[in-house]
Design a protein around this nucleic acid. Structure first.
Lengths: 133, 133
DNA sequence: GCTTGACCTTCCAATGGTGGGAAGGTGTAT
DNA sequence: ATACACCTTCCCACCATTGGAAGGTCAAGC
């Protein structure tokens, strides 16, 4: 199976597959006589794992850890849970940050009449002398 | 006022101030005989504006637009509002995406007993054959 | 006057994850 | 043979920020 087909099946771009191999996330793919990379079900399965983890926001380094655990039949689920929970907390704190941003912004937008007049609470808020306003 | 002091006052790193100047977000600072950049209240005020906008998640290009509007006494507040609202919607959709991630992840974490046993719904979820699981 | 240390200057590189594209090889169908 | 779709490696760009090297400047203390 060529890289394009594997990419299609796994939901990861061919570009990224090569990249994952280059940074050592994946073992170098087998090559045909062509020098074309050759993928089987096992590799596609791994790629799908990576794709899904990326879509859940895990970093490459986190995925490196998760893949190692995945391959290890004797891993304690505790280790997996720790990685996932740390990432979840990271996600949650980033969400909270962005919600704070959105909240302030909504406030500013709500008070701006948004017509042809120049006075604008949004610009006033950004230019204000005090940091909390 | 040297760049360090201006950075301190405005809540933006000196490194970034130079960068903002290099990319044309800020007009080149006046220089002393030293060749040191020299900042006054007006410039610090602008830097503070930029810092606040960055903290609200506006991109450099958005800030470029906002700064131009800020400097233009005759801007229609409509234009400002449009920029802010577009950014707000962008923020909101990114928040929604991340909340979806966090939700799936919470689900997985909740079902993982997290002890010394190897079976783990988190890994099962990431490795699953189906995409929606 | 000379040293020390805290500033400042410019320039180059790295981060993370992904995409774009060049330049060239390969496979397959007409 | 020709066209086209795929593959290969390689380098570059994005965005915003940080780090560091190599060197200039200033103020304080001895």
């Amino acid at each position: 199976m060529n890289i394009g087909a594997a990419a299609e099946e796994a939901g990861v771009s061919a570009k990224m597959i090569r990249h994952y191999e280059a940074i050592g996330l994946l073992r170098p793919a087998l090559r045909r006589d062509n020098r074309y990379r050759d993928y089987g079900d096992r590799e596609v399965h791994e790629l799908r794992f990576i794709g899904r983890a990326r879509r859940l926001g895990f970093s490459i380094e986190e995925i490196r850890t998760l893949l190692a655990l995945w391959r290890d039949d004797a891993r304690p689920s505790r280790d997996v849970r720790r990685v996932a929970q740390a990432h979840l907390q990271d996600l949650e704190s980033r969400i909270a940050e962005m919600q704070a941003m959105a909240g302030s912004l909504r406030e500013l937008v709500a008070h701006c009449h948004g017509d042809s007049r120049p006075d604008c609470p949004i610009l006033d808020g950004l230019g204000a002398a005090r940091e909390n306003g």
